[in-house]
Amino acid sequence: MQIVVDLNRCEGYAQCVFLAPKVFELHGEEALLYAPAPPAEQAERVRRAAAACPVQAILVGEQAGADAGTGAGADVR
């Protein structure tokens, strides 16, 4: 699982911090820090946090391009 928070949109309501405190934390009063690749056991809490975000700033998904492989220009589909 991979997450990204659109911090332009985030206004520091901190609903995510209450729902998934091991993934999201406030740094100071309103700067959000989060773990971009939370462990599987946090998945349900993260989904609830994303759903509860008043400004819908949290995107949850599988890692983009995970099937792209790594390497020197090899074609990967």
């Binding site: 991979q2 990204v4 820090l33 690749a37 998904g61 890692q63 983009a64 391009g65 390497g71």
Partner: peptide
């Protein structure tokens, strides 16, 4: 997060919005 040592650098992948049928040429 990474410089604070809270998150390993390898964790900062992006979530996909959808599956993309594409050819990737990385590196």
């Amino acid at each position: 997060q990474v410089l604070l040592g809270r998150v390993p650098a390898a964790d900062v992948g992006l979530p996909a919005r959808r599956q993309v049928d594409a050819r990737w040429k990385l590196g």
